[in-house]
Amino acid sequence: MIHFIHASKSYPGGHVALDDVCLSVDRGEFVVISGPSGAGKSTLLKAITFEVLPDRGEVIVESFRSTALKGRDVPRVRRQLGVIYQDFKLLKDRTIYDNVAFALRITGVDHPRAIQERTLRALHRVGLAHRRHARPLELSGGEQQRVGLARAIVLDPLYLLADEPAGNLDPRAGDELFALLREVHLAGTGVLLVTHNPGRADSRRDRLVHMENGIVRELVRPLRHAAGGVGA
């Protein structure tokens, strides 16, 4: 579970990014977070990765609490989270395969066979195994973002955080990416998707959360999750 318990965060200069946020996300949920620029959507994701710590209140990710966080806990939390970015953040001087395998190698997976199997499996899931020897700049934007997705899921995270993942993609590439996000979700990974376009949400299955001026407001909540957990 991810819990925000009356969490607030202000940046120097007084901008309020999170304002008394209360939100709980179960493993296996698909949460679409929409809102205008500067609403605090990215800060919400950064608070989950503990890149940003709340000034007041608390954020809990599985067993890790922001109020009792030790330095060595941060990598342990992040290994349970996969993140994809609007600008992909790929290493341009390495192959697609190496970009994905890199995530395994630097988190202590060092058996060559395990690295190969997991990397190829992740690339298969995003349909890019055949391009594994290419470098990022040889791929289209949509393909690059799928490499970013493969890197995020290769560690089998509990949650996938996607920060405007289709922001730099054409509509078709965006559709392909969202189809893949649905597949990742169906395989059991919770997804928190930050987007300007709430039309991407499926109101029957997804939770739709709106943010404005750091305040979280739940718009749509599927029936099976309606029992509680959100306030603003």
Partner: peptide
């Protein structure tokens, strides 16, 4: 810095970075 950012994001410890 891109590489360091990715290392941090996927959960590399400071020793690895």
């Amino acid at each position: 810095r891109d590489m360091i950012e990715i290392m941090k994001a996927v959960g590399a410890t400071n020793t690895y970075i």
